[in-house]
Amino acid sequence: MFEAKLDRGIVLKKILDAINQLVNEASWECTSSGMSLQAMDTSHVSLVAVNLNGDGFSKFRCDRNMVLGMNLVNLSKILKCAGNDDKVTIKAADGDDKIKLIFEAPNEYEVSQYEIKLMNLDAEYLGIPETSYNVTVKMPAAKFQRICRDLNQIGDAVTISCTKSGVDFSATGDLGNGSVSLSQNSSFDKPEDNVTISMQEPLSQTFALKYLNQFTKATPLCSQVTLSLSPDVPLVVEYKIIEENEEDSKNEIGHIRYYLAPKIDD
């Protein structure tokens, strides 16, 4: 038996919005410690990994490890039927070929139930080792989204260059070129606007904006995004999954990490 309850349905909606255009089908691995998912896009250039901690749920029970393969587009459709403030419970019985989704409205007298068929999906699991990255940039997620969107007006790829003075995002195309430079800054009053750069050595790598723009669908999950880069390894773009509850307190309940291989010739 598997049962997981989140107090705010909007978190699950945001997670699905962040991944379902990149991957249509994927398997959730459910263990006593939480739920996780790893899937590559069809061209095997990018990968998304989601991790939800069991203790981030208001109720979490996993009697034995389960793999729940499903169509994420369909899951997303069903989740659109849940209110943002609904409590959402995912239930799966051992050996069953479907999962149940239960939405409880805040008014406490309205309960909706939906079922989704499970799928047997071929496992395509990549072993990603713990890596020490040369450059780590932590910046406002909305700023990163804006930069990727704006530079995609200029070209298909962005070159991320890190030096002691800061980080440059630049693109070149038929109409010309453009760049956005950020330097480290910190604000006590608005920590969500901070830019933090940690660098061992200067670095410059180029990535397809098509994928980065897909990654920024996770922007509503968290105010800050972390970019991790090293020569000859894929870029990692990480968003914490933050649940804001009624008292406006924020709990980190997991993360989404996107991996993107660099452009050829880099």
Partner: peptide
């Protein structure tokens, strides 16, 4: 369309 490396070139698939 720019040419991209594939992720399995970097990580073990199991």
């Amino acid at each position: 369309e720019i040419e991209q490396q594939c992720l399995p070139n970097y990580y073990d698939d199991s």
